[in-house]
Structure formats: structure tokens, C-alpha cells
Write a protein that binds this DNA or RNA. Sequence first.
DNA 1: AAATGGACTGCAATCGATTGCATCAACTGT
DNA 2: ACAGTTGATGCAATCGATTGCAGTCCATTT
Lengths: 342, 342
Amino acid sequence: MATAQEVCRLAGVSTATLSRTLRNPELVKEDTRNKVFSAIEKTGYRPNFLASSVKTGKSNTIMVLVPNLINPFFLRLIHGIEDAAKEHSYSVLLCNTQGDPARENEYAAMTLSNRADGIIHLDHSFPFSDSDKGLAEKVPMVSIGEKIRADFDYPVIELDNFAATRALALHLVSYGHTRFGLIAGKKNTRISQDRVDGIQSVLRSENIDFSDDMIVGGAYTIECGQQGAIDLMNSKTPPTAIFCLSDDIAIGAIHQLKQMGFRVPEDVSVVGFDNITASAFIDPPLTTIDQPAHEMGVRAVQVLMSQIKGNALKRQREVLPFLDLLERKSSGSAVNSVVAKA
Amino acid sequence: MATAQEVCRLAGVSTATLSRTLRNPELVKEDTRNKVFSAIEKTGYRPNFLASSVKTGKSNTIMVLVPNLINPFFLRLIHGIEDAAKEHSYSVLLCNTQGDPARENEYAAMTLSNRADGIIHLDHSFPFSDSDKGLAEKVPMVSIGEKIRADFDYPVIELDNFAATRALALHLVSYGHTRFGLIAGKKNTRISQDRVDGIQSVLRSENIDFSDDMIVGGAYTIECGQQGAIDLMNSKTPPTAIFCLSDDIAIGAIHQLKQMGFRVPEDVSVVGFDNITASAFIDPPLTTIDQPAHEMGVRAVQVLMSQIKGNALKRQREVLPFLDLLERKSSGSAVNSVVAKA
DNA sequence: AAATGGACTGCAATCGATTGCATCAACTGT
DNA sequence: ACAGTTGATGCAATCGATTGCAGTCCATTT
């Protein structure tokens, strides 16, 4: 690779002019510029990204902390992040924390050594260790999903989970369901709470009982959906309709219900959350909430970039509306359910 | 953030000793080391990653070029890559080329400016533009899947596609199938060719005809699987068994076949390729080939690291065996197929 | 006691850019 | 014709590390 010196010698200019030609062309006279460009062309010179980064103190990189690469919802988020980052000439460092706090912390600490200019955080924990907390105060960060640490100032991009599950609940109530179950991803998170609250807000006004023991689950996985279906259907009052807090959970639940001899939706209705690609193609196609995943990723980058540029944060929470309730075939009337008759 | 100077002043040492304490501790006397460490602790100092990278010329980053973030198979690969990279203290720059050569080229060129030390390439094209080709010769690179440019020296990690589809074909033949269709991802690629050859090697020895017009498709997507099923079932001699070259394709095909009134596997058997998580949970559960995706990612990193460290390449192609033929419920006997009778 | 050698440590150059300041030429206005 | 601008360029310091070389100190050898 040609060095800057060679280019400069060939073009008959100083390194200062070389640098200006590339970064602030308007400061350089046109024919000088052309000389420089043709010298660059001839030598195949590329400015060393690392060197300019040391000097400017910006790595033009954002770090994405993701708990796993299985949940298809994260992929749509990452896709959005990637697109938006590219728009800003930023690169994306993908960090799979595997839900491990130590690993998460290790990655997050990399921002403290200029490895990245900011963090987009998809996990529902706090990525910095206590010892780094003080230092972390200056690291631009935005969370997607929910915010854990109230004592720490960073913005969050979230979905209007309350409204989304309200829509789902209204949908199921309109079919005449009165016995509900719910399979959660992570329990005791704000997301889960908001979603349960959304459901309750509908059921209460309909005087339908929905108690905590009808909430099972604990992971956003297919396997969790299977186990959740087993638990719910074996309870004293098995539900005729099941809210699944992700499409993966719903896929597992439907699979298990069929395995157990229940028809979906004739005996049990199942609704999901996320709208992953596969959910339109399972049997029956899944009724679900379409999340604006790509847009959430894009917004996260925008907010982060504005932090990186040093702007004050305008809003601490940004709540996006859900896109749509997709009514497909996994939900329907409860009148002929063998479960209800039992 | 504390600077190196402060740490040095506090510890009463030079920056040289600071650096050595962190990078080559064995060169520093123990009590000096301790003084340095406690000064680091006190100040919260972190060495600037960018600065050390300029000096060493290594960015400790590998770039992963991926055509999309939809195909779940890529995710397992990326997972493996990430794990292995972390093992080597390397970070992963995720670059979504979206199948666009311009975008791909733009990313690849970043290695030329020390943005990354090497490339792992999951697309089936050649990431560098012709003008960069000369420069690219020195960039460590490894491809996963297949190699496109014969004139360019870089290693490939591939699956034994031939053996895999042979296993699938033997499986289907043992059920008595004689009329086959195939829905490909990208046609005219080495992968597709090898897979078709594997099938042919079985069918020829059974004297079963399998002509090119029974090969449809063109993308590794669910939608392509749907369209492929339509095309195949509307042909003059519709097949009783369909090879799908990815699980996503198979999911689309099965969905479509059911839509068209065919039973799977009673009328038409469908087999997939990849073993993504969802494929065990669709109806019917998919017979498929389990690819060692994680391991392929890991191997790719190992080979790349050895290139980065300057070792000569030992093998140009590394062919991994497939893990398993998972016989599930989407494939079965052809005797009662309405398709065969028609 | 002098010489040898090994273990530590510091000085200062270096990596490859960016950028404030100085310089110089050309142009403007009076 | 001359002072004052303006525009374009170069000089050299700087970013924050790493590292070759040289110097110091102390223990060992003869």
C-alpha cells in the first residue's frame, strides 16, 4: 500500500494538503485537488482509518449489544441499525452478549477505550459493571426495548406495548373468549408488565378474571412456548386463548397444542407478538402484532448519533406505536372449544 | 478519562513501562508492576485502542460480509464467528451487503484502510471491485460456502453438499419416490451444482430420470419456496418429492402445497436443508440436513487468523461433513399419493 | 577489585493521519 | 502604488500508544 509520503511527493504537495483534499476539499484549489486525486489514483493510496481516528478521537463505530442471534426480531432491529449507521458513515460492531453479564460488561468496557463511539443496547440489563459506572456516564448509549437503571441517564426507544396487547385482547374478547393464559418472555421486566397491563385494562372493563397464575414462561424461545402450553393446559382452568409475548413462543405453543390434541384456533386461540417472517407460514398462520423493528433500529441510531455529536438529549423515552394487528388464522371463536366445555 | 501521563506521574514511571506492564508484564519488575496497576486503578485509565492499533497496524477486527440478515443459517454462522473471534480478542464488524455489489465493494474496501484485518465472506460473489483487485491481494480473506474467483487465492470453508443431498436422495428413494422436483436458492452456483450432482448420482444409479426443468427457484426465501411449489405442481409431471435447498424454501413450499390441497407427506414429500430452529416446529416437522453452521464459522475464523498472523495457507478448500440427516415427518411413502395417481 | 552479564527502565523516534498558525501570492480598493 | 484582504499552502505540533536502543544497577564470576 502506498503511503501518504509517496502520494505527496508525486503530487508535489504537503501531507496537510493531502488531508484537506480528502476531508475539506473546499479549502483546496481545484487544480491542486486534481493533482492530488490523480496521484492517489496512481498509487492506490487509502488513508489509514486508524490514524485519523486517533487524531479525531472518533472511531466512527457503534457497538450493538445483543443478547442472542436467535430471536428474529433482533435481526430486523440490527438490519435497521446497520442501514442507518451506514447512512452516517458509521460501522456496526456486533457483540453477542449471550445474556452473560460478564460478557456484556467486557464489551461495554470497550467503548471506554475508544473502540466505539456509542452503544445500542438490546438487552434488558445494564451493560456496565459498577466499577465502570462512573466512566460510563460519558459514553453515549441508547437502549431499545426498555430501561433498567433509573439512576442512569440514557434514552430508550420502546414500543407502545400497552396499546399493542390491548389490541390483541380486544380482538380475542370480540371472539368471545373469557379464559386467558399468557406465556411471557422475561418476567418482571417493564415490557412484560406493560403488556400484561394492556391486557388487564381490557379484561377488567369486561369483568373477566385474569390472575397471575395464568402467566407462565420465562424466555423468548420456541421451547419456552412448548413448555408454557403444557403448563397452561394442565392448570385447573385451561385457557381458550393464549397470549404469547413473542412469535417464537407462539410457534412453540401451537406446535405443542397440536401435539396435545387441541385444534388451533377451534379449541385454543393463540396470538403472538413481533411478526417474524415465518409466522405467516406456519399452520395455522399466526395472528400477531407487527412491530416497527427496522424503524426502531433507525431511530436508535439517530438518537445515538445526536448524542455522539454532543447534543443534549431531547427525550428520555421515545415510544413508537405498533404497526398493525395482523389477524390471521390462529385466533377465532371460542364457541366450539372442547376446552371451554370441559 | 485519565490519560497515560497522569497514570505515569502517579506511578512514577515512564509511558514505556506503562505500556510494557500492560502488554508484556514479564518485562517489568513485580513491584513496579504493582505501582502501575494501582495507579491505573486509581485513575480509571484505559489504553486507547485506536492509538495502539495505529502503531501496531492491526485493528483486531474482522469484517463479516453477509448478504442478508434474514436467512437463519447465516445467524448460526455469525454466532460461530463471533464466538471464535472473541476467543482471539477480535471484534466483529457486521456488514450487511444486501446482495448489492456496490455496497459489498464499499465494505470490502474498508479493509484497505486498516478498518479491519481480514474478511469473512458469506456471499457468493467477489467483494472487491476490479480497481481494488490488486490491492486486495494482500487482504486476508476466507469465504464460507463457495468460491467464485478461481484466479484469486483465498480459502473456502464449505459443506460436503454432494454427500448431503445424496443422503436426502437415498432417503426419498427408499420411500419409493420416482418423480422429483427441486427448488434451488441461487442457481448456477457451485453449491447448487454440487447438491444437484449429489442427487443425480443417486437417481442415475436407480435409473430415475431427473431433468433440468424440474429445477426451479432462485432465492433462499420462503416466498421463493411458495412460488417453486406452484411451478413444480403445475408442470406436466408434478413430483411426489421435492428437494428444497434451504429450510426457508421448504417452509414456503409446504405452506403452499397445503394451500393447494396437497397433503405433506402423504401426497408430496418435502425435504429441506440447513436445520434452522423453526423447522422442527412446523407442521409437519421438516426432514432436513443439519449443517455444522457454528463450526463453519469457527473454522473460518481460525483460518483467517492464521492468514492474519502471516502463515501460509495450508489448504485452499476445507470441506466439512454434514452433521446429520434429520428424518422428521415431512417425508414419507409415495404409495398413496394422489399426485402419483394423477 | 574489576569485569561480565542480566534484569529493569527511560529516552525518544515512530505509526499515519489532522490542524492551528504562519507564510506568501494575488487581488481589492482608494 | 500601497496597505489590507482573501485564499491557498506548508510547517510542525499533536493524538496516544509501541518499541529499539541505551543506560543504570546489582549480582555473579574470576
